[in-house]
Write a protein that binds this DNA or RNA. Structure first.
Lengths: 223, 223
DNA sequence: GTTTTAAAATGAAAATTCTAATTGTAGAAG
DNA sequence: CTTCTACAATTAGAATTTTCATTTTAAAAC
């Protein structure tokens, strides 16, 4: 993961650079706006941290120029506090996010990680002949797509991510529905029914088994 | 945060104990089942890690006895690999989760943290005269409740959590809707409309302002 | 100041998700 | 082996969420 920092205050850029490197990122620093723009356009980065106040070429201008070139790299602005108008301009110019100075390193790191969680989603899981594309959120059976709704997809993906381990109703409600208190309704059953129907899973094709009194489990081959 | 480990193998319990302490938890260890049960019933823990195979009193029996006493403390089982039947019994006996041996410490820690994220949710936010109870997921205005649906609540809570900072449409779609690709539809507008209606927010009561071309912002007093 | 344009607010219909009632089934108890 | 009981499957209907078309509003261009 490669990050570009465009920041003229050496103290700050050193601090950020060091901290991010310790977290395992590859870091590149530009202490001047024009230099930063050049790097942004020629090299490939996974994220750009852009200071708002830069001597030669302002962060806003850099951001606009990058977007003109149709670059989609995520840009995160570092802006001075209380400049509401500026942050508006920043976001309008195509920035993905902004963080107010002064910020803690922890805060920044959290924001950065969120942006990466996003990108890392493209994985394809499988269950028997079924393929589940987490990035595109699509399900395929024998290479033809089966249309799933949001929640149906979430539930199926969850079971297959935990292939081979039993998923209790409690865990499912917590992890898929994000409900963190005692809760009991037929939702899970209803969606399970829908999923099995769409995938033609009869008891003879037990890719998703019911564990009576507990929950469900997804398994490739019956044991 | 206080964790009880019930595990007869000293090597494992030491390893876990030390690791968890380094993570900032208070840890108590019982090397025998009966001792573990006694501690579980007399002391107050935030989580119990229970080994399945214990010499005197098995983990299953301990779990059942704890639940008999109506204790609701989360119980996480450590079970040997491939004992499907056992994990079923465990979950049926009232365990909240289980993890297969051998497991990495990271894995265990992740699971533990999930259980705690749950409990730490009870916070009350405010925006002007509006109160938002994150734990109960309820909204109050002048001490009388205003009924919100799931998504309405999520969106309002998100804006208020970020009170004072602009939330771009992109960020909202990512963080509230969990959609991590380019997406554009009127959903946000529709929900914003619903929220403002329910809270009688007219342009004269600008607790939630529209930032044209960018998104929205929640603010206590207009500046 | 008027016109033009683009974005936001609104309303209504379509789709999804959830609730709740009914039917079916596996395991326990007799 | 039969009956009973509790849980799961299924279904239909209600509520929520989303899409889409229309109206309104704000900012930009003239």
């Amino acid at each position: 993961m490669k990050i570009l920092i465009v920041e003229d205050e050496i103290g700050i850029s050193n601090f950020l650079s060091q901290g991010l490197q310790e977290e395992g990122f590859t870091v590149d620093v530009a202490n001047q706006g024009d230099l930063g723009l050049q790097k942004a356009l020629t090299e490939k980065y996974d994220l750009i941290l852009l200071d708002w106040m830069l001597p030669k070429l302002s962060g806003l201008e850099i951001c606009l120029k990058i977007r003109e070139q149709n670059k989609v790299v995520p840009i995160l602005f570092l802006t001075a506090k209380d400049t509401v108008q500026e942050t508006i301009e920043a976001l309008q110019s195509g920035a993905n996010d902004y963080i107010k100075k002064p910020f803690s390193f922890e805060e920044l790191l959290e924001r950065i990680k969120v942006h990466f969680r996003t990108a890392t989603h493209s994985e394809v899981l499988s269950l028997g002949t079924i393929k589940i594309d987490l990035g595109k959120r699509k399900v395929f059976q024998n290479d033809s797509e089966v249309i799933f709704t949001q929640k149906e997809f979430d539930l199926l993906a969850y079971l297959v991510k935990n292939k081979g381990t039993i998923c209790s109703r409690n865990k499912i409600i917590e992890d898929v529905w994000d409900i963190h208190f005692e809760y009991d309704s037929g939702v899970i059953d209803v969606f399970m029914n829908a999923i099995r129907k769409k995938l033609n899973l009869t008891p003879d094709v037990p890719l998703i088994k019911t564990i009576r009194g507990v929950g469900y489990i997804a398994e490739d081959n019956h044991e």
